[in-house]
């Protein structure tokens, strides 16, 4: 079975792979947060996912706040 290489976007392909690790971890954190909120009996907050994504991804813009 042939395993195809994933596309590379950064000058150093190690960064491509590490981004995958970071995003997998971030997804786990978000899922766990949702689970904790459900266990606490709290309703999902509207816009929570967007706020989480903004907080997570803003550094890639490379701009000062």
């Amino acid at each position: 079975m042939t395993v195809e290489a994933e596309q590379v976007f950064f000058a150093d392909p190690a960064l491509d792979r590490m981004m995958g690790v970071v995003m997998a971890l971030a997804a786990e954190v978000f899922v766990l947060r949702a689970k904790i909120r459900a266990l606490e009996g709290a309703a999902p907050e509207p816009g929570d996912a967007d706020a989480f994504a903004r907080h997570l991804l803003e550094p890639v813009l490379g701009t000062r706040p």
């Binding site: 978000f30 949702a34 689970k35 967007d50 903004r54 991804l57 813009l61």
Partner: peptide
């Protein structure tokens, strides 16, 4: 499942950041 729904919400929110603020920066 609730976990899968939360995960898909996360991916969707990241996509909105990609299509919005990240696109505008580019």
């Amino acid at each position: 499942t609730p976990e899968a729904r939360a995960y898909q919400d996360f991916v969707g929110a990241c996509r909105r950041f990609w299509a919005g603020p990240l696109f505008r920066q580019l």
